[in-house]
Design a protein around this nucleic acid. Sequence first.
RNA 1: GCCGGGGUGGCGAAAUGGUAGACGCGCACGCUUCAGAAGCGUGUGUCGCAAGACAUGGAGGUUCGAGUCCUCUCUCCGGCACCA
Length: 868
Amino acid sequence: MKIRFNPSEFEQHWAEVWHKEKTYLTHNPQPGQEKNFTLVMFPYPSGAGLHTGHARVYTGTDVLARFYRMQGKAVLHPMGWDAFGLPAENAAIKEKKNPNELTQHNVANFKRQMNKLGISYDWDREINTTDPEYYAVTQWLFIEFFKHGLLYKKETPVYYCPHCKTGLAQEEVQGDGTHERCGNAVEKRNLPQWIFRITSYADKLIDGLQNLDWPSGILEMQKNWIGKKDGLNIDYPVQETSETITCFTTRPETNFGATFVVLAPEHPFVQKLTSGAVKIKDKALEKPLMEYVAAALRKTERERLAEEKKKTGVFTGFYAENRLNGKLLPIWISDFVLAQVGTGAVVGVPGHDTRDFEFAHTFNLPVTRVVTDGDADESLIVSAAQVYEGDKGTVINSDFLNGMDLSKALEAIIKHHEEKGWGTRATSYHLRDWIFSRQRYWGEPIPMVYCDACAKNGISFWDTKEGEEQSLRLNKAPRPHNLRQLIADVQPLMVGWFPLATEQLPLTLPAVKSYEPTDTGESPLTQVEGWKDTQCPHCKGAAVRETDTMPNWAGSCWYFLAFASKPALGKVKTDGKPWRDGDLLAWMPVDWYIGGAEHAVLHLLYARFWMHVLYDLNLVPFYEPFTRLRNVGMVLAEDNRKMSKSLGNVINPDDVIAEYGADTLRIYEMFMAPFNQEVTWSTQSLQGAYRFLRRIWQLHNNSDKVAKGDEKSTKELAVELQKVIKKITQDIPNVKFNTPIASMMEFVNMWERSGNVLSKGDAMVFLQLLAPFAPFVTEHIWRSIYAQASSIHNSKWPKINEHLLVDTTILIPVQVNGKVRDTISVAVDADEEVVIAAALASEKVAKWIQDKAPKHIYIPGRILNFIV
RNA sequence: GCCGGGGUGGCGAAAUGGUAGACGCGCACGCUUCAGAAGCGUGUGUCGCAAGACAUGGAGGUUCGAGUCCUCUCUCCGGCACCA
């Protein structure tokens, strides 16, 4: 008798039962119990609802959580909403809705869909970054960072998105010069911005990578993004002035080959020339110089990129002295030199740097060879192809360096400069400080106040009583970093700026009708009547609030702490921090962090940075938040393109669940390919998952295949089941979800085709193995057919019966000259002679050996190879 | 240019240096059905009637034995990039 398999008849029911029974409630680890914090990167709740990519990453993480829960570990598997930020606000503007209401609405929809998918979240720990209680803590942390000199405000050239009308961080600008969120071209603008001094943590952020179990690609990306390079800052006196130009170089050993110096248009010496502070002697040079600099400064990032590396520039008429050999180096200005890199000034060595060569070639500057690479070629360099940039070779034409190999020369020349006082060791980073202001409404208001009167009196936070007390505390800080120096740096810039007191938090986002961004570089909060005006926390006079908001990355920098320990500002008074150390010690760091690779240098870098700082401030007991990171691959539409509304190729999980059930969707998404790999959706392949579940359903509903009484499983099935337990128990912690499903399918094929009966106990064990992947149908069978009182998801993960796995006979493939000719069956403990005799007795083998006396190689229990 | 990750049947893919293609999709034939769908069964890398030979992007190498290790090379995907 066939029974219909219709998951929609029971899935909803069990979702409700789990909710009622609190099946997935978090229990703090008991003494001796291992903890497991399994976390998926929390979503921004978009209006489109869950897509198949969400379903994939949440299911994979859920499999891990369910597996560890059944293994008896204390599991924390929470979910929350990263709801501040541009996408939510832009969507709200488009639909002319209030972003707060829209967010609430989308969250409800996401949650409904996640429950339908059967993801085992503990909803008691749900958080939302836009909740005032939550962002009160984000603001409190901002203030902590400010007080320790890690944040300051300054007018500076920043990336600016004219579409989103806000400043951006370097990390938010993509390789093609577009904004990571909206895809529009980014410009540069001078704007007063809050700046987070992430570069002061560059070294710690590199060192911290060492012990992380992350995909190597992500580790490399972070390392390259921080981009640490050691080199030398060399000082060059400018002839006939009292000026000095400092050039950063990573190749000082080639410095005898220097023939010119190039400055970025933004370089201070250039500013002195254009302002007249330093007089240009040759009047003929003045006009072209002024024009070139003005044009370069006007150019947008895009225009600079578009010019395809053609070298342009102007001569200043000044010369710098290379004190190594007394040569005078003409000083040029060119926009190929970037102000933010190194010192914004480059010493040109055209013989051994292609860009320098191109510049020298364009302006007929001399080229000198100072290195030979192995083949002892000392010829003149006249084409770019001859420029040798490698680090293996011998130095020539370089006085005391002559004959040294490059690595030895590097040390020698650095020492020489240091001894003479001509230069100092320096480090350059690709990483830039983090622009932390957004001129937008939908974000955490920055909890700072500016007082003009105090500013005029030169008073900063560190001049107040509280600031002084905090300064004293720094002396006792267990992990001081270089915070004293950081504070000293920012103090003069930050006169007049004061943080809100903890009691004044949260500084709530005012409810307004109109919140559209302005094009003035000012936040819409400036338009809100009366919101801006406040009292100076120090002098109590009239003062104004900061009107910029924080970027959407702020809330996600610490949300995992909120899952581990419910945050509340009230705890600051008693504990000195908004969470409990005990809770953090119990759960942090995150054991499994699962998400897409697109956050490699955004969220993952920012969150690490915050934790390193909080550790130094003694606010958290660890500094690397994510022990293990695993990436999930994208799910492409059936046409191999990204799913998108405009292409009309989106698969909605709701539709799939309605037709096939959530378990089918889960099994399919786990089975289709390795978890970290990109996959293409196939509705046809989805059927395979449905068929698999239906067969299981029917096997359990059909009394022929499962013992009614105490009958035992046949030996063959019992052994096979043990192998499946072993395989799945090994594969899940390796984030291999496709192969466990394959092995369960194999087992089902065997079970079905053998016509044999499985004992009730073994049938239940099989259900347990499937439970993390297909929680609904397994629970339904477990409770309705096997009449279990409590959930399969809190049952104990099956143990392997090693005893059953010991074979008595084994199959040995027999090769002749490396080609398999037969397979023989021998006792597991058979001696080599016995195996060989058995192999030689095989006709198939004998045929290939004939009369020759073969040599052989026998790997006990594995393979036998005859060599003829 | 630099840094990562891939290339295995018609397709998605499996494979601690030890029987390449498990498992799934698709396809073919058969059973079932008034018919179709669904289901069930058998087969399915290529060439070959078969014996067998050839097959993991390409070329070499190490090994009794290589998809797996080494060298070179082609190609696709991601990241960074006038970074001094």
